[in-house]
């Protein structure tokens, strides 16, 4: 008790000294809330109310039908389903492809190990414009853009391919930090290296797998440029491109409330993930960012 009194006084004084800091951060945070809060409110208002500047007053109640309309008549449900499919399948495949590769690169010495690692790191800095033209050329030559199903498969393959370097490098640092005593014990018990990986090492790497999967899911969900080029028909578009074409058609429909509802629908999945997992995401950024 005796100690806590002066301590408290010091920390209060410290808060006063930090006041400018609090002020700056609070203003920024406040603006973020206003930005998203207003769009959320507008998504429940009517277009007429938005134009009158009454988006925050709801004079005619909450209009849930904006969401229903956006979801059904504006194709948002299709875009949403597409994105969900692309993002979850690609994310799962990425773990399947990259975890074994990362494990081998982290555990075994061979002459191509360093070159592979460095080229993966370098690939993370390669702008999309440097790879998109040949990809498009090859894909069109192979007649893959004619049918919905081949476009969908192609999108998944490309999403996986694009994210291989990042995912592998991220998991590589993760595997390097696992002690090799597990494998030694397993080898003494006669467990083959491949089996050791699937039954012992992969489960141990679970925290890293989860973090990198969150990133991959969010990145693929938000991906824009590649989908713009390859997914040209409305039936195969993911949300980002779908939202763009919806906004584009706003010129004719004039349904602003519906557009804001669509913005919220696109924003919500990653936002919900973020609310629950922000600490994990932030920890992953700082771990992966330094490497990149």
């Amino acid at each position: 008790m005796q100690n806590s009194i002066p301590k408290k006084r010091i920390s209060w004084r410290k808060d006063v000294r930090l006041l400018p800091g609090y002020l700056i951060l609070t203003l920024w945070v406040l603006f973020t809330f206003v930005l998203i809060g207003w769009v959320l409110a507008a998504s429940f208002a009517t277009t007429r109310e938005i134009f009158k500047g009454q988006a925050l007053q709801f004079p005619s109640g909450l209009h849930f039908e904006n969401y229903v309309k956006a979801w059904t008549s504006q194709n948002v449900s299709v875009f949403f389903g597409n994105s969900l499919g692309y993002a979850s399948i690609s994310t799962a495949l990425l773990v399947l492809v990259c975890a074994p590769a990362a494990y081998v690169l982290s555990r075994f010495k061979f002459f191509l190990n360093r070159p592979i690692q460095s080229s993966f790191v370098a690939a993370m800095g390669v702008p999309m414009v440097m790879i998109i033209l040949p990809l498009f050329g090859i894909v069109t030559q192979m007649q893959l853009l004619k049918q919905d199903i081949t476009i969908r498969l192609l999108m998944i393959v490309l999403y996986v391919g694009i994210n291989v370097p990042y995912t592998t490098i991220f998991l590589l640092t993760f595997f390097s930090n696992l002690s090799s005593s597990y494998e030694e014990a397993a080898a003494i018990d006669g467990c083959s290296p491949i089996k050791t990986f699937w039954t012992i090492m992969l489960p141990l790497a679970q925290p890293g797998l989860i973090t990198v999967s969150i990133f991959n899911f969010i990145n693929i969900w938000n991906e824009y440029f590649m989908s713009l080029i390859f997914a040209s028909s409305d039936r195969v578009k993911p949300v980002a491109v779908g939202l763009y074409s919806m906004i584009d058609s706003m010129k004719y429909t004039g349904d602003w409330a519906g557009m804001f509802a669509a913005v919220i629908i696109v924003f919500l999945p990653t936002f919900i993930i973020y609310i629950f997992l922000s600490e994990k995401i932030i920890a992953g950024i700082t771990a992966g960012g330094i490497k990149g």
Partner: peptide, 17 residues
């Protein structure tokens, strides 16, 4: 273990670059 990642890497990055 390495082949799938390397094949994809070559197909999506190395060859197109």
């Amino acid at each position: 273990f390495l082949a799938p990642a390397l094949i994809l890497f070559c197909a999506v990055f190395v060859y197109p670059i």
